[in-house]
């Protein structure tokens, strides 16, 4: 469902050009659960942002469900994000002024779904993450793990086929991290394709497929496994 061919991303600031992604090639099939690891600054977030159409790329081709993303207008990308993609962020990114219910409702409002159906879907998703009874709470009244579950409910509310998570457990303790991971696995079993960036080798190991990004490219996987096993030194020096 996702195909990237020679996708490159160059950030140009006043002094330097940063090649955050170079000739990035990847094929993701429907229903996969992929963990993306790699050293800091290697381009994981950049990859995820391009995959989620949060950023444009400098060159190459990116097809999502056969749609050439490079040809889309800003509005079309916004609509496509809304329909196909659910985001889970390291910092949860709940809207602090809105209560739990309203937060989960946000993507549904942008899709123009009617109030009754919105309500049903929000309830369903909050039940799914086990927070069906906290509708009127504000985000800051919840623990980090609960907030991330709300964020997952929000990502699920639009029934996306594609979930992108950038270090979803980065701000959580290991117990909460495991709960979130279990939730993601369950969601994956129900059919959603998931790409998750993580620094946690334990969580990465639980994912059926691993990719390691080094210096803006996908590193050799077998090499990576040897590193994990400790038989080979780390590749990255950035």
């Amino acid at each position: 469902m996702l195909t990237m061919q020679n996708v490159s991303k160059v950030y140009t600031t006043e002094k330097v050009q940063t090649h955050a992604l170079r000739d990035f090639n990847l094929e993701v099939n429907e229903g996969e659960f992929i963990a993306v690891t790699g050293p800091s600054g290697s381009g994981k977030t950049t990859f995820l942002n391009i995959a989620g159409m949060l950023e444009t790329y400098s060159s190459g081709q990116y097809l999502l469900d056969g749609i050439d993303i490079g040809r889309l207008s800003d509005n079309q990308r916004a609509d496509l994000r809304n329909q196909k993609i659910g985001f889970i962020f390291q910092g949860f990114n709940l809207i602090p002024d809105l209560n739990i219910f309203e937060n989960v409702e946000v993507p549904l409002r942008y899709r123009g779904i009617k109030s009754a159906e919105r309500k049903a879907r929000v309830m369903e998703c909050l039940e799914q993450v086990g927070l069906g009874s906290r509708l009127k709470h504000l985000p800051q009244q919840l623990s980090g793990g609960q907030q991330q579950r709300v964020a997952i409910a929000r990502a699920l509310a639009g029934r996306p086929r594609f979930l992108l998570a950038d270090e979803p457990t980065g701000n959580l303790d290991s117990l909460m991290a495991r709960q979130v991971m279990e939730l993601l696995e369950k969601i994956n079993q129900e059919g959603a394709t998931i790409i998750m960036v993580t620094h946690d080798p334990e969580l990465a190991r639980r994912a059926p497929r691993n990719i390691q990004v080094v210096d803006g490219q996908i590193a050799d996987f077998s090499l990576y496994q040897k590193q994990l096993a400790g038989t080979e030194p780390a590749v990255a020096e950035v």
């Binding site: 800003d74 509005n75 609509d79 809207i95 993507p107």
Partner: peptide, 16 residues
């Protein structure tokens, strides 16, 4: 800013 970015990520058009 972060909230606006998040809303955009969740599918808000600029006009929204």
């Amino acid at each position: 800013t972060k909230q606006i970015g998040t809303r955009r990520a969740l599918g808000a058009r600029k006009s929204a």
